[in-house]
């Protein structure tokens, strides 16, 4: 995945300016930055949900909207849907297959196998029959990840999956992501959580509407851009950190133009 001089504008507001970076096979790239820094905008643009106003963006050599269905899997924050929807965990994960099926094609045994495998990766096989309204926040997040995996994507985008989940779920998600990356899947993940970035990611992209730094976590820390973000987020109280356990569940107001 390559982005060159990428700009994204919402009418009179520029959410992202001149972003240039690439994600490689078998790499987890973390996107860090304060609220309103364009993390979600960047992920949505790569997912093909927003069109860049200028610049070049290609995934596997094509613009996102030209890709075959199922190529990019996007995992939004769990608040994005109504969890009172009448569906089981299995039903939701099975939706990951839908982009790949034409209307005349049956949901076959291969599809069921892929769904089952996706559930086993997130350790939710025994919860397959549970109604989604009865899931905890961490289980909802894992169900979303399983749905993305059921798509058999070539690129995985995660939007702050650790927001509001407990430490055990966070560690579980980290293990899942590291395993996927080890299997060769490129992963791009926005995060609030500045602690443990070196456990999560191979490289970091520090974003505040423009790319402030890009490199390994160590390089980024040494460049000083990271501490500027850290300073910013601490003074503004945008980010949670582990000294305040309750902050993990606080509402993070996000600038949504």
């Amino acid at each position: 995945m390559v982005a060159r001089d990428l700009d994204v504008r919402y009418e009179d507001f520029t959410a992202l300016v001149g972003a240039t970076f690439a994600v490689h096979y078998g790499e987890a790239l973390g996107i860090v930055g304060p609220n309103g820094s364009g993390k979600s905008t960047l992920l949505k643009t790569i997912a093909g949900l927003l069109l860049p106003s200028s610049g070049k963006l290609s995934v596997l050599g094509q613009p996102p909207r030209k890709l075959p269905p199922g190529t990019i899997a996007y995992v939004p924050q769990v608040e994005a849907v109504d969890w009172s929807f009448p569906a089981t965990v299995w039903d939701v994960v099975a939706m990951g297959r839908f982009a790949r099926l034409h209307f005349w094609q049956h949901f076959g045994s291969n599809d069921r196998e892929v769904v089952h495998h996706a559930l086993s990766v997130v350790k939710m096989v025994d919860l397959a029959g549970r109604r989604i309204s009865n899931l905890s926040g961490g289980q909802q997040q894992r169900a979303f990840v399983a749905r993305a995996l059921a798509q058999e994507p070539k690129l995985l985008l995660l939007d702050e999956p650790t927001t509001g989940v407990d430490a055990a779920t966070e560690e579980g998600l980290r293990e899942i992501v590291r395993k996927l990356v080890a299997d060769g899947l490129p992963v791009l993940m926005a995060t609030h959580d500045l602690d443990r970035v070196d456990d999560w990611f191979d490289r970091l992209l520090v974003l505040d509407r423009r790319v402030l730094a890009l490199g390994t976590p160590r390089e980024v820390v040494e460049s000083g851009a990271y501490s500027a973000i850290r300073e910013h987020t601490h003074t503004h109280g945008h980010l949670r950190h582990d000294h305040e356990p309750h902050a993990a569940h606080a509402v993070h107001p996000e600038i949504r133009p």
Binding site: L49, A80, D82, V92, M95, F103
Partner: peptide, 21 residues
């Protein structure tokens, strides 16, 4: 005919679109 697509876009139109629907 549109059953699966209608179901997915009813539950989660954004992710459905990202997946190519």
């Amino acid at each position: 005919v549109l059953f699966r697509g209608l179901l997915y876009t009813t539950f989660d139109p954004v992710v459905a679109q990202a997946s190519g629907i």
